[in-house]
C-alpha cells in the first residue's frame, strides 16, 4: 500500500528531474525504503508524468517477480545500495555536467563553496556494462558506502538520501558543482584560489 503523501513525493521529485532536463522522457529512476521493502518507479515510467501505478513494491533482500517483470531496469542497483549503505531513498538521473565530466575525469573535486562543504569529491566508476548489470550494482553500492553520490562513467548519477527530497537535493547539488567545474574548464583560465587544495580533499 502506497499512501498519497508518498506518491506526491515521487511525483514532485520526478517532475523536478524532468523540468531540469536531467533525463530523457523515459529514463531515470527513483525509490525509497518502506516497511522493509522498496518502493521504486516502474520500468520506462515517465518521471515527469508519474501515475500511481508507476510505483511498484519490490523485495529488499532478493529478486522477486515484480522486480524482474515491471520494476526499473536498475532495481538491482537500488536493492544493493539499500543492503550495503545507509540510504533511505535513491534518485538516479543522467545529469549532463556530471555525465560529461565523467568521460574525462576519474573523480570530480568540488571547487565551489557549497560543493566543498557538503560533497568534497564525487567518485566516478567505470563498468563494462554500465546499465542494469550486476557489476554496476556491486560497484555503485560499494562506492556509496562512503559518499552521498557517485557517477557511473558515461551513464549518470546515483544519489542517496534520508528522503526522496533529500536524495534529489544531493543529486542536484553534485550536478551544480559539476556544472561550475565544467564552465571553469570551458573558460580555460587558472583559478585565483583553489580552496579544495587547501582542505586536504586528496585524503577524502
Amino acid at each position: 500500500m502506497i499512501d498519497k503523501e508518498t506518491f506526491n513525493s515521487f511525483d514532485l521529485v520526478g517532475k523536478d528531474l524532468s523540468n531540469r532536463g536531467y533525463n530523457s522522457s523515459y529514463s531515470g529512476n527513483i525509490s525509497m525504503k518502506s516497511g522493509g521493502k522498496i518502493i521504486i518507479t516502474r520500468r520506462s515510467a515517465m518521471l515527469g508524468w508519474l501515475q500511481p501505478e508507476d510505483l511498484v513494491i519490490i523485495d529488499l533482500e532478493e529478486e522477486d517477480a515484480h522486480s524482474g517483470l515491471v520494476a526499473s531496469t536498475e532495481s538491482n542497483v537500488h536493492r544493493n545500495i539499500y543492503k550495503e549503505t545507509d540510504a533511505m531513498a535513491i534518485v538516479h538521473a543522467h545529469t549532463p555536467a556530471c555525465t560529461a565530466l565523467s568521460m574525462v575525469e576519474d573523480e570530480i573535486t568540488c571547487i565551489d563553496a557549497e560543493g566543498m562543504l557538503i560533497y568534497k569529491k564525487i567518485p566516478v566508476v567505470e563498468c563494462d556494462v554500465p546499465v542494469g548489470s550486476y557489476e554496476l550494482a556491486e560497484k555503485v553500492a560499494s562506492t556509496l558506502k562512503n559518499y552521498p553520490a557517485m557517477i557511473v562513467r558515461a551513464h549518470g548519477v546515483f544519489a542517496k538520501g534520508i528522503t526522496l527530497e533529500d536524495a534529489l537535493g544531493v543529486l542536484t547539488g553534485v550536478e551544480q558543482s559539476a556544472d561550475i567545474l565544467y564552465r571553469i574548464k570551458l573558460m580555460g583560465q587558472p583559478l585565483k584560489r583553489d580552496y579544495s587544495k587547501e582542505k586536504g580533499f586528496s585524503n577524502w
Binding site: 503523501e5 518502506s34 522493509g36 518502493i39 533511505m88
Partner: peptide, 25 residues
C-alpha cells in the same frame, strides 16, 4: 532532529511511510 530542525536532513513530521525504516537506521 530531522522532523523539527532538518538536521542534518529534513523529514516531514506527520508522514508514516518509511518512518519505521528511518527510525531503525
Amino acid at each position: 532532529a530531522m522532523e523539527l530542525f532538518s538536521a542534518p536532513k529534513r523529514v516531514p513530521r506527520f508522514t508514516q511511510q518509511g518512518k519505521p525504516d528511518l527510525l531503525v537506521l
